[in-house]
């Protein structure tokens, strides 16, 4: 089981990184989403894997799943939605403004240092 979870995280990460290195905004956003899954599952797994024991207190149960990573990951999932939405909006705005959805700036950086003399 541990092997499955660890390899799943590894595969999610690899897929995420590969897509993140693409040249257009949409696959990059998908890649970041995949990485988000990987990170969330990774954090969740830091409570170690527990099958069939939820962190809901019961009188007749002694073993529970680790609640802390779950709480952390819960907010992380919701926040990551907000962040994905912002990134998508920025990508969309850039595309609508320039009809171009490349992530790399073909012109290179603006040389702000050139005007230092005056």
């Amino acid at each position: 089981m541990e092997l499955l979870v660890a390899s799943a995280i590894g595969i999610l990460t690899a897929g995420g990184i590969y897509l993140m290195l693409r040249l257009r905004t949409f696959p990059v956003i998908l890649g970041i989403s995949l990485l988000t899954y990987a990170v969330n599952v990774f954090l969740f797994a830091s409570g170690r894997l527990t099958v069939g024991a939820a962190p809901i207190l019961r009188d007749d149960v002694s073993g529970y799943a680790d609640p802390l990573p779950q709480a952390l990951v819960l907010t992380a999932i919701v926040i990551s939605f907000g962040m994905t939405a912002v990134v998508v909006m920025i990508g969309l705005g850039a595309f609508l403004g320039s009809e171009d959805d490349h992530v790399d700036d073909p012109k290179g950086p603006v040389d702000d240092l050139a005007g230092g003399g005056s």
Binding site: E2, V5, A6, I9, G10, L12, A14, I17, F42, A45
Partner: peptide, 18 residues
């Protein structure tokens, strides 16, 4: 690059899960 990153997270996760 992606495979290296994936292998790294896999190794890390697998070892701490055990």
């Amino acid at each position: 690059v992606a495979v290296a990153g994936g292998l790294a997270t896999f190794g890390l996760t697998y070892h701490y899960l055990l």
